[in-house]
């Protein structure tokens, strides 16, 4: 089992200098194996700092991070090994591509894991299939490809490590709607086939509302809200007060409620809103 658990996690940047900044303050939460959790929050709310603690890229100033019950910071070997079990895809990951061919780039992670050639080959091809990169692209230079393709190759590079936990920091940033859709479906596909935990950091409330099982809201380095999309989006005013957006359907529902329409509390998708309005219309007609 690879449940992630953090206790009293605190992180201070530039500790002991005049530029000291508390980025995380007392974060305690647990994410069970296989969950699809979304982390949302304002820029600077600490969400990026938080995810970098989950694979020991950053060490806590106070508190600890447990993976499957074991402290990931217990020694330097543990800090190294956790990077293979918790894969982290950074924002705009296409900037990290460096090899001559797509194949070699995807193989970088597995090679660092010191796997044998056959296993590396299996993983590279499998990861490429997951993100919809055709075989003939594998021998091309990653630098010749389109932005969306590069993004998917970078994600494949992390998936090829076959992590139990896959964390993605804004994987759809800067892509057009079709590109976003493809990446999200790749991620869902990976999760379904591998049973991995997926943690998604996103600014797009519509995406989050659609695919997440659980939403964790960060605000100024603290855990502000934590619950299912239905729970979180039934309190849209609080999200707005934190400077966050809500899904467009929720925003529209809020505006309709202000105009006296009696709509159910938790609406966060087009279908829900449409159904609620049609039900209201039927009710009126009877």
């Amino acid at each position: 089992m690879s449940e992630i658990k953090t206790g009293g996690l605190r992180h201070v940047y530039s500790l002991g200098t005049p530029f000291e900044k508390v980025a995380l303050d007392g974060i305690g939460l647990s994410i069970p194996q296989g969950q699809l959790a979304a982390i949302i929050g304002h820029t600077g709310s600490g969400k990026s700092t938080f995810i970098q603690h989950l694979n020991a890229l950053l060490s806590p100033t106070e508190g600890q991070v447990l993976l499957g019950g074991e402290d990931i910071n217990r020694d330097k070997y543990a800090r190294r090994d956790v990077k293979q079990r918790v894969g982290l895809v950074f924002q705009y990951p296409e900037y990290q591509l460096f090899e001559e061919t797509v194949y070699k780039d995807i193989a970088f992670g597995p090679t660092n894991m010191k796997l044998d050639a056959e296993e590396i080959d299996r993983r590279v091809r499998k990861a490429a299939r997951f993100v919809g990169v055709e075989e003939e692209l594998l021998e091309r230079s990653p630098l010749e490809l389109s932005g969306g393709q590069k993004r998917r190759i970078a994600i494949a590079g992390v998936i090829a490590m076959e992590p139990e936990v896959l964390i993605l920091d804004e994987p759809t940033a800067g892509l057009d709607p079709a590109g976003c859709e493809q990446i999200l479906s790749n991620i869902l596909d990976y999760r379904e086939k591998s049973g991995a935990t997926v943690i998604l950091v996103s600014h797009s409330m519509d995406d989050v509302a659609r695919i997440a099982e659980r939403i964790i809201v960060f605000d100024q380095g603290r855990l502000a809200m934590d619950g299912s999309p239905a729970e979180i989006f039934s309190r849209p005013e609080e999200l707005v007060a934190m400077g966050l957006n809500v899904p467009k359907a929720t925003e529209l529902a809020m505006a309709l409620r202000r105009r006296g329409l009696r709509l159910p509390e938790s609406i966060f998708s087009h279908e829900q809103l449409l159904r609620a309005l049609l039900a209201l219309k039927e009710g009126r007609a009877c």
Partner: peptide, 12 residues
Amino acid sequence: IDGCADEIAAQF
């Protein structure tokens, strides 16, 4: 959002 909500609310 507001214009759209006005339209719909007016109907109801």
